[in-house]
């Protein structure tokens, strides 16, 4: 049995990664053992993946993305609280800028997926498998080689092998996780009410209001 390690964002400084991408020519029967090395900027992890879409993958994804734009709940990512931002792009051609750029026709449509997240990497992938596995499947089952979402190891291996390491990463708030950011925004939202109450109520009334705030927000402080 071989074990993989999952580096945790925040335990390494922003670094330049010069490693070679792992070989993608290994046999299909080999268990996935690629190390998932996210780029880190403080406590944020960043992963960029390009996958090759199956022939009907492009139209399916465009329809799916259109549907989830109108029914956002179908995306199901809101409750994860570990994702800052995610983007998906279906790429059918590349921008052309004239010589010396070579005009090239992509052999397949590609799906570009980039995520910025804050949880340690292993729980993050686990959340994808156990929390929104069906949503992930809906998107990535259109890609060649997608192993499904039954196994955390399988999915992490897939992401690990396909992820393109960054040469330069930046985060405006490297010390903040998604959860602390959302908590801080919640606290800030109530703060103005507390200030107003402190100015306009008696000490006893304010104490009740403030303790109510602490009860509601103790998990955010």
């Amino acid at each position: 049995m071989r074990y993989r390690s999952f580096p945790t964002p925040g335990r390494a400084a922003v670094t330049v990664r010069g490693q070679q991408a792992p070989s993608r020519e290994a046999g299909a029967g080999t268990p996935p053992t690629a190390v998932l090395r996210p780029d880190t900027a403080g406590r944020a992890g960043m992963i960029t993946v390009l996958t090759a879409l199956k022939p009907l993958g492009g139209p399916w994804l465009r329809a799916l993305f259109a549907l989830t734009r109108h029914v956002p709940g179908l995306t199901g990512l809101g409750p994860l609280k570990s994702v800052h931002f995610i983007r998906w792009t279906v790429l059918a051609s590349l921008p052309y800028n004239g010589p010396p750029q070579v005009r090239e026709r992509l052999p397949h449509r590609l799906l570009l997926w980039e995520t910025v997240y804050s949880a340690p990497t292993e729980p993050y992938v686990e959340t994808f498998v156990h929390g929104v596995g069906d949503k992930v499947r809906n998107i990535w089952s259109t890609s060649h080689g997608f192993p499904g979402t039954r196994s955390v190891t399988g999915l992490a291996g897939y992401i690990g092998e396909l992820s393109i390491t960054g040469a330069h990463c930046w985060s405006a708030h490297p010390g903040a996780t998604v959860r602390t950011t959302l908590s801080a925004l919640d606290v800030a939202k109530e703060h103005q009410y507390l200030v107003r109450a402190a100015r306009n109520t008696s000490p006893t009334e304010f104490a009740v209001i403030y303790r109510g705030f602490l009860d509601r927000r103790q998990g955010d402080l």
């Binding site: 993608r24 020519e25 390009l50 080689g145 092998e161 330069h168």
Partner: peptide
Amino acid sequence: RWVVVSGAPWRYRG
């Protein structure tokens, strides 16, 4: 973020 893309990064286990 800046990332350099080269080769066939979409190829997974053949």
